[in-house]
Computed example of a mutant assay.
Amino acid sequence: MTAPPGRLTAAPPPRPPARGRIRGADVARYLAAALFTSFVAVPVLPDLFGLDRRSPFVQLVSMRPWLLVGVLAVVVLLGVVLVFERRVLPFAAGVLAVLVAGAGLVLPRALPDPGAATGDPLRVLAFNAYEGDADADELASVIEEHRPDVVAISESGPRFAEQIAERVEPLGYRVHVTTDDEDDDDVEEVTALVADRLGDVDVRVGDDTTTFPYIEVSGGELGELRFVAFHSVAPVPGSVPDWNDDLALLPRWCSGPTPAVIAGDFNATLDHSALRAGAAGCADAAAQRGAGLIPTWSPSPRVRLFGPQIDHVFATDGITAETFEVHDVAGSDHRAILTTLRLPG
């Protein structure tokens, strides 16, 4: 039935949804996004929360470059969902912030420092012989080809040192081991090779680390420079406090009164705050050359490209890296690292 013209009235506007109900839903969504972001951030950025000096975060952060690949995949997925559902925006924004923060910590290590290195060269090689089971012939071939001035060999006691000595002493190297006890296990010892051209050097064995001793070389053509063959205990569950203590020794060289080069297996990446703190005052040769993401350890040769970089050559300020490269040596789960440093005149 049609209403008379004089009695027509406008339809009342629709009632808006209850404001309290919308606000409550928004709060719940943002809280959920914050929790989700924290769930992503803690394993990727534990050093920002002070967690990366304890298990399991100390192990997780060593794989941060690869974890960020996973975070990127999550960002892409949320971006696709966002096209159809705007309510995932706070989730996408939070995970994107984690990705940006992580990339800001990692990517600079893939960019070489500008400017050319100048000064007298010092070639340094570091290698973990994996309980003395590495192929001594292959390692000797690397040494013969590149003629490093000093070499740090972790997990090398008298047994492996004798094998390598037979091959490199004729090339003009002296071999120094942290012990001469033939019964000692290779895994607990360190060997240093010093080229004869460095002259009459002083060699000191330090045993104030928690597990593995170190070798400090100075004098001769090195002058006041101290070269340290170093090996930290691995941060496996139960040994993380010892690992922290080992890395806490680094300031004696990186913040010491004389220039220093520290080389070896640190069982830590530059994503570990304990290593960054200990090595303050030193620069990492790989990072200086834009090679700071090249893996140096993996549990199997089949996944060699996806491991962390835990072998390093650190040098105090003023000493710069000119080159950095890695070499595979059979029989070890580590790769040998080789760098040419330039010492200030």
Score class of each variant (00 low, 15 high):
residue 80 V to G: 11
residue 166 E to N: 06
residue 199 G to R: 13
residue 329 V to D: 08
residue 224 E to G: 10
residue 344 P to G: 15
residue 328 D to M: 09
residue 334 H to T: 08
residue 269 T to Q: 05
residue 98 V to T: 11
residue 112 P to V: 10
residue 124 V to F: 00
residue 187 V to M: 14
residue 299 P to Y: 03
residue 109 R to T: 02
residue 161 A to T: 05
residue 20 G to S: 00
residue 206 G to T: 14
residue 286 A to Y: 01
residue 117 A to G: 01
residue 282 C to R: 02
residue 148 P to D: 03
residue 269 T to S: 10
residue 200 D to I: 10
residue 270 L to T: 04
residue 287 A to D: 07
residue 276 R to T: 09
residue 340 T to L: 07
residue 169 E to H: 02
residue 2 T to L: 15
residue 119 G to D: 05
residue 131 E to P: 00
residue 309 Q to E: 15
residue 102 G to Q: 07
residue 241 P to M: 08
residue 49 F to H: 07
residue 164 I to V: 13
residue 64 R to T: 05
residue 335 R to N: 12
residue 47 D to Q: 14
residue 107 L to P: 00
residue 93 A to I: 05
residue 131 E to Q: 15
residue 4 P to M: 14
residue 337 I to Q: 04
residue 231 H to T: 12
residue 176 H to P: 00
residue 19 R to C: 01
residue 71 V to K: 02
residue 306 F to Y: 04
residue 36 F to D: 06
residue 251 P to M: 11
residue 122 L to T: 06
residue 136 A to N: 05
residue 10 A to M: 06
residue 323 T to K: 04
residue 131 E to W: 13
residue 98 V to S: 12
residue 72 L to A: 15
residue 303 V to F: 13
residue 267 N to P: 00
residue 105 L to M: 15
residue 111 L to W: 13
residue 227 F to Y: 04
residue 131 E to Y: 07
residue 284 D to S: 11
residue 248 A to F: 05
residue 138 E to C: 06
residue 15 R to T: 13
residue 124 V to K: 05
residue 118 T to C: 04
residue 172 G to E: 07
residue 288 Q to Y: 01
residue 321 A to K: 02
residue 250 L to D: 12
residue 73 A to N: 01
residue 147 R to Y: 02
residue 333 D to Q: 10
residue 233 V to Y: 02
residue 86 R to K: 14
residue 236 V to M: 13
residue 266 F to Y: 02
residue 324 F to C: 11
residue 176 H to M: 03
residue 137 D to H: 10
residue 58 V to Q: 09
residue 153 I to C: 10
residue 27 V to W: 03
residue 230 F to T: 14
residue 68 L to V: 01
residue 120 D to P: 08
residue 225 L to Y: 00
residue 29 R to L: 15
residue 342 R to L: 10
residue 241 P to F: 08
residue 36 F to H: 05
residue 332 S to P: 00
residue 244 N to E: 15
residue 155 E to N: 06
residue 292 G to F: 03
residue 289 R to I: 01
